[in-house]
Design a protein around this nucleic acid. Structure first.
Lengths: 148, 148
DNA sequence: TGACTCATGTCAGTAGTATGACATAGATTG
DNA sequence: CAATCTATGTCATACTACTGACATGAGTCA
């Protein structure tokens, strides 16, 4: 198979494997979200708002791993399409708290089912113990990388 | 900390963690490659060519997780800048085997040092055993996701 | 209080990558 | 052998997210 043909460095590189895994996950998610007319960031934004209503543009950006400029563009389209609402002017400062509309919540429900099935497929074949160590390992990598 | 504040669903989602880790790795790599005038795909392409000379456009695309169209654009610029060479016409079929030039090899050397330091930082704080289980876990996720 | 720093929302421009489409070479199959 | 399928290289186009930049509000501190 291709794994035997590939150079050893590639196979021993956790960075390469991490990239491969994230690409595989992204592809799988795009595949199930595309029929619903959603991108991953689009879905992530709605999901985040469902769990933590009232989040601001910048907070949503951080939670979905995009810049606040990108999230701003997305929020404008979501607002135009009636999935979220923001007050015309900020209650305090410049921060505009965002809320899901009923339409946004309905749209999210379908997407959540689709995404959950992808995640379940990803984790199939892993025991609870294996999932736990994967969690710890990923957390460690994240912490080491972000720590400056 | 933010981990305590965040919703439980987020923290228990390995998919979310996987995305966070890959974003952290990508940012860290972009940070060290930018001063060298390289993107991640740019570096990955050179690295792959160093390990497996003569790879075609499509093979490089698969190895770096982009489409063959994107890789084609990149290869044209790499060829224009003298980092790689391709024969004017295909020895067999339509496949054009690509080779690193001396200039490309020199350029790659600096990048390799920078990227290796990032990977080492990512793995700092993980034992060999932890790295091994992370390897197995990621491999399992990849296999499950790609398996259709 | 006034100067400074930081975070936010937003606009404009750019870069990287993807999708769609086409022609062509090799492999497969009847 | 002819027809079909698969893979490749490439062009044109579109989209997603980024960087740069600006004005403004809030906290900090001398």
């Amino acid at each position: 198979m291709s794994q035997d043909e590939a150079g050893v460095d590639l196979n021993t590189s956790l960075g390469y494997l991490l990239k491969e895994a994230s690409v595989a996950l992204r592809s799988a998610m795009e595949e199930v979200l595309r029929p619903l007319g959603m991108t991953i960031t689009h879905y992530s934004c709605l999901e985040l708002l469902a769990q933590r209503p009232g989040l601001s543009n910048s907070e949503l950006a951080r939670g979905t791993f995009v810049t606040r400029q990108s999230m701003n563009v997305l929020l404008q389209s979501l607002e135009r399409d009636g999935f979220v609402t923001r007050p015309a002017e900020a209650p305090v400062g410049k921060v505009l708290p965002t809320q899901l509309t009923a339409s946004g919540r309905r749209s999210l429900e379908k997407a959540t089912v689709a995404v959950r099935s992808v995640e379940e497929r990803m984790l199939s074949g892993m025991s609870d113990a294996e999932r736990a160590v994967a969690f710890v390992a990923l957390s460690s990598m994240i912490h080491s990388l972000k720590d400056r």
